[in-house]
Every structure is written in C-alpha cells, then in structure tokens.
C-alpha cells in the first residue's frame, strides 16, 4: 500500500464530516460531523507517521492519540451543552437556536 489511498479516504471523510456539520438540522449531528473531521485528521496523522521518514519517533501516532483524547473531551462538553439547551428550549434544531439570550 502507498500513502495516497489513505489520504484520499481521509479527504473524503473530512468532506463528508463537513457536509454533515453544514447541512444537518440537529445539533447532535453537527457535533458528529465535527468528530468525523477530527477522525479524518487522525487518519492523516497516522498515515503520514507510517509512510514518513522516521516512524520510530512515533510523533504522528502520539499526536493522533492526543487528538482522540481531545475529541472525547469535545464530544462530552458539546453533548452536555446540547442537553442543557434542550432542557431550556425543548429543541435541538439549530435553525431555531437564534436567540442569544436565555
């Protein structure tokens, strides 16, 4: 295997994540889209680590590991916010989240 197929998969995954984040109405699905974009970045990091000059330094892999941890934190806080918002306004529809005052 070469590097290019992995990068193409990552690029398509990123585009799909972007598509989900930009087109879906539900706030949870927007968060999912962001997660997918982060995952695509992780795939890139690992692919470049594997086919890069010095895989023994593990830089890309550890970067991906940290990225997974950050993504988990992001998901938990984001979903917490969605639940808090739902409790407040009884909707997760982004088109209706137009007020900035609670």
């Amino acid at each position: 295997m070469t590097l290019t197929p992995y990068l193409i998969v990552a690029a398509l995954l990123f585009a799909l994540g972007l598509g989900i984040a930009l087109t879906r109405r539900n706030a949870i699905l927007v968060l999912i889209g962001i997660e997918l974009m982060l995952n695509a970045a992780n795939l890139n990091l690992i692919a470049f680590w594997r086919f890069g000059a010095h895989p023994e330094f593990m830089t890309g892999m550890l970067f991906a590991l940290f990225s997974i941890a950050v993504a988990a934190a992001e998901a938990s806080v984001g979903l917490g916010l969605v639940i808090a918002w739902y409790r407040h306004s009884k909707t997760t529809d982004l088109d209706q989240m137009t007020r900035m005052k609670g």
Binding site: A11, F14, T23, R24, R25, N26
Partner: peptide, 21 residues
C-alpha cells in the same frame, strides 16, 4: 432534516473534497 443552508453546505463540502484530492 436538513438545515436551511443545506445546498451551500453540500457545495462547500464537495469543493473541499475536490481541492484536497
């Protein structure tokens, strides 16, 4: 199920995919 700006969103996603690839 799509948001109000879904057409723009998909266009943006497709453009990003083409640019990346």
């Amino acid at each position: 199920v799509a948001s109000s700006g879904w057409r723009t969103g998909w266009v943006a996603a497709v453009v990003v995919a083409f640019v990346f690839i």
